[in-house]
Design a protein around this nucleic acid. Structure first.
Length: 478
RNA sequence: CGGGGUGUAGCUCAGUUUGGUAGAGCGCUUGGUUCGGGACCAAGAGGCCGAGUGUUCAAGUCACUUCACUCCGACCA
């Protein structure tokens, strides 16, 4: 394997990970800046990744019985104010519309930071009987949160996402939905994005504004920082009471329904970059890569090369997202270019290969070269795509395992992080908010989640040494 | 929101200290030679020096304001 760095205008990730990240999003043509802080152009290559993610996720939502809808982008202030915790959580970061044309509005409108309130207003209009339940809705929209610090994909002021909103007859059904959708997200991250995640529950202080409980999937990035990759919330009947959503139940009594919401966003693209990328650029998981395989003709001016390359392209087209680069850039330039863009598989085809009835296949994540017969090219490329997915997943999982540490005291946490850099720390917790805050204060690592898969590291709290209740996953977060 | 850094050609940057006709490399265009890891030669195009106000005979350069990007914190899902 050849690990030389082939692209010298990307900052090395070991030297400056943050700079490396911004270099990648610019050089791989994922985003462009605009004159509004934190509002980005998602360029065709970046958007194509999102479209692939959407297509796969949308299929999973449909398969679990959900319907797509679309709510307005404005929320009247009075509507946002109806649920106390919710408005307190979101008010500091909403953008307001105060004028229509030159007329000042009677009531200002906020640009949706999330759409719970709109869904609730709608539910109150359409739900009357237990026969109207459940409603399993989802929408693909953008939302606005006026963030102070912005970073492409990871934290922007406007971002694309999907938000699922469901409403159920019983609490048990809503809890089941919350857990089911978290599972869908975890499966998507692992099967489509090759990104291993930890499923867990958020602590009280960290849950969504207005939720009874919040579940999340947490991923560990290459630099040891955690990324919340998706969330799923159980609301109980709190929103229903605040918005007066009622139905006649099976005993003909007035009853409050139970709700959930869940979302993932373009932030996942940031997660892909920081999970799989290296000093040569992006490395995209095949399932979402806009181009899965690129054909590079060698000595394209020589007789028969271009014709053979086009023939190959046609053959692959049926089952692979394939591109043929006929530009007159040098082969070396193209190698570097497509590596930077993270294309999983490269096919080199030159006069020598054609003579032998073969071609060279190179996989992005490890740069391994394989010579294959042109006869079996389709199967060979499909096989290589699976290898890239598995290779990316394995590499990411190994990074997480290597960077996950068990600690019994906060001093141990500090030492571990100083010696090894950031990562996940598994440590016990007594359940008090004071200790949660103190750990963050002392170590810089906050609570990421209470993993579903519990293990007893110790019987005492990592902070106060009183009896521990649960194991918590701690880490520095994006 | 606090602290640092940066805005000059499409990109990366020099020029600012000491005010005096706008620079380089890469990229781009045209033609030719090349082609198995970022090729070479020749000719060309390309700028309201982030925006605004001020000082000055004269501002990329000095002062103030503002916007954006970026890093570190705080906040945040």
């Amino acid at each position: 394997m050849d690990n030389r760095k082939m692209v010298d205008d990307i900052t090395s990730m070991d030297e400056d990970f943050a700079k490396w990240y911004t270099d990648i999003v610019k050089k791989a043509e994922l985003v462009g800046y605009t004159s509004i802080k934190g509002c980005l152009v998602i360029r065709p290559y970046g958007y194509a990744i999102w479209e692939n993610m959407q297509r796969i996720l949308d299929g999973m939502f449909k398969a679990t019985g959900h319907e797509n809808v679309c709510m307005p982008m404005f929320i009247p202030e009075s509507l946002l104010n109806k649920e106390k915790d919710h408005v307190e959580g979101f008010a500091p970061e909403v953008a307001w519309v105060t004028h229509g044309g030159s007329e000042k509005l009677e009531e200002r409108l906020c640009v949706r930071p999330t759409s719970e309130t709109l869904f609730c207003e709608h539910y109150s209009n359409i739900i009357h009987s237990y026969r109207d339940l459940p409603k399993l809705y989802n929408q693909w929209v953008s939302v606005v949160r006026w963030e102070k610090t912005t970073r492409p994909f990871l934290r922007s002021r406007e971002f694309l996402w999907q938000e699922g909103h469901t409403i159920h007859e019983t609490a048990a059904q809503a809890v089941e939905e919350t857990e089911k959708m978290l599972g869908v997200y975890a499966k998507f991250c692992e099967d489509a994005l090759a990104m291993p995640v930890v499923k867990g529950k958020k602590t009280e202080s960290d849950k969504f504004a207005g939720a009874v409980s919040t579940y999340a999937i947490e991923a560990l990035m290459h630099d040891g920082k955690a990324l919340q990759a998706g969330t799923s919330h159980y609301f109980g009947d709190g929103f229903a009471r605040a918005f007066d959503i009622t139905f006649s139940d099976r005993e003909n009594k007035k009853s409050f329904p139970h709700q959930t919401s869940w979302g993932v966003s373009t932030r996942l693209i940031g997660g892909i970059i920081m999970t799989h990328g290296d000093d040569n650029g992006l490395a995209l998981p095949p399932a979402v890569a806009p181009i899965q395989a690129v054909i590079i003709p060698i000595a394209a001016h020589k007789g028969g090369v271009i014709e053979k390359a086009r023939e190959l392209e046609q053959k692959l087209k049926a089952s692979v997202r394939v591109a043929l680069d006929e530009s007159d850039n040098s082969p070396g330039w193209k190698f570097a270019q497509y590596e930077m863009k993270g294309v999983p598989v490269r096919i080199e085809l030159g006069p020598r290969d054609i003579e032998n009835g073969e071609c060279v296949i190179v996989t992005r994540h490890n740069r391994e070269k394989t010579v294959v017969k042109l006869d079996g090219i389709v199967q060979a490329v499909e096989q290589k795509l699976r290898e890239v997915h598995d290779g990316l997943y394995k590499k990411a999982l190994e990074n997480r395992i290597k960077r996950t540490y068990d600690c019994k005291t906060t001093d141990e946490m500090i030492d571990v992080m100083r010696e090894n850099g950031d990562g996940f720390i598994r440590a016990m917790w007594c359940g008090s908010e004071e200790c949660e805050d103190a750990v963050k204060e002392k170590t810089g690592a906050g609570s990421r989640c209470i993993p579903f898969e519990q293990e007893s590291i110790s019987d005492k709290c990592v902070c106060c040494q009183r009896p521990a209740k649960t194991m918590v996953l701690w880490g520095k977060a994006y």
